[in-house]
């Protein structure tokens, strides 16, 4: 079996009203790897994460997405999720009328590895402890009235409960205080234990990135991947920002 987990080839994405957002992207994440996608605001980072789960707000105009060597470009959102791709939303959606518990139970039942009721409860309890989340949250409606930090923790809770093959974390750490960031790091470390899985982190927080093992960094500027490298790129951006890369794109467009 191939080591490749996710592969996007010549991948272009536009909004539904035909504005090009992502241009001819090529990227491969192997099993056991953690990648980081960085770039200035408006580069298309969140679009990339969201389009990997077929968000109807975007359409693929060119190229393919292969997941574990299978072409999933035409698959619907829930089908991709069942294959094991998980997106932690930058802004998790409020859904009144659905309790967090019913939602989790149903999501796990629908996943590749459904658990028995007992297994489910045990796993849930241990993850609640890791994430320092109170049981009371389970009876509340999904994300309704949750603070920014609580929502991010609930995203992490879902990630660990569903144990997908590929986790995409979109600004998982934004707006969190130091304690909460540390809890998220615990969650990420927990997920990284399994060497069959992969992770794509969309972030510009250097604090969280410095504390993680990173295999590869991709720099996205105006919809193009403009540079790739190891974690040394993170330090460079830390010191000089994205201006070097933005100039590069400017040259390219000229």
């Amino acid at each position: 079996m191939s080591e490749k987990l996710l592969e996007v080839n010549n991948y272009s994405v536009a909004s539904t009203d035909d504005i090009a957002i992502l241009k001819n992207l090529n990227l491969t994440i192997n099993k056991g790897e953690t990648h980081v996608l960085m770039g200035p605001n408006g580069a298309g980072k969140s679009t990339f994460g969201s389009s990997l789960l077929a968000n109807p707000a975007y359409k693929t105009t060119h190229g393919h997405i292969l997941f574990e060597d299978e072409d999933i470009t035409a698959l619907a959102t829930d089908k991709r999720a069942k294959k094991g791709i998980f997106l932690s939303f930058q802004n998790p959606v409020e859904i009144p009328g659905i309790s967090l518990y019913s939602f989790l139970r149903s999501a796990v039942k629908n996943s590749a590895v459904p658990l028995t009721n007992k297994q489910f409860r045990e796993k849930l309890n241990s993850i609640l402890t890791i994430l320092d989340l109170k049981k009371e949250y389970l009876e509340r409606d999904l994300n309704v009235g949750f603070s920014g930090g609580e929502r991010k923790k609930v995203e992490m809770l879902q990630l660990l409960m569903l144990s997908p093959q590929l986790a995409i974390l979109d600004e998982t750490d934004s707006g969190l205080d130091v304690d909460a960031v540390n809890i998220m790091l615990k969650g990420i470390n927990e997920f990284q234990q399994d060497k069959e899985k992969g992770m794509l982190i969309i972030s510009h927080n250097m604090h969280i990135l410095n504390k993680l093992n990173i295999d590869k960094v991709h720099i996205l500027v105006k919809g193009n991947i403009i540079a790739e490298g190891g974690s040394e790129l993170i330090n460079e951006i830390n010191e000089h920002g994205f201006s070097r890369f933005e100039i590069q794109v400017g040259d390219k467009n000229a």
Binding site: D78, R80, A81, P92, I95, G97, I98, S99, S106, N110
Partner: peptide
């Protein structure tokens, strides 16, 4: 938007309706 969120967790429309009832 919420439907996309639910689907991104593997829950299709039919299942989503069921969870609303169960909740």
């Amino acid at each position: 938007e919420p439907l996309f969120y639910l689907k991104s967790r593997g829950i299709n429309e039919k299942a989503a309706r069921q969870i609303f009832l169960e909740s």
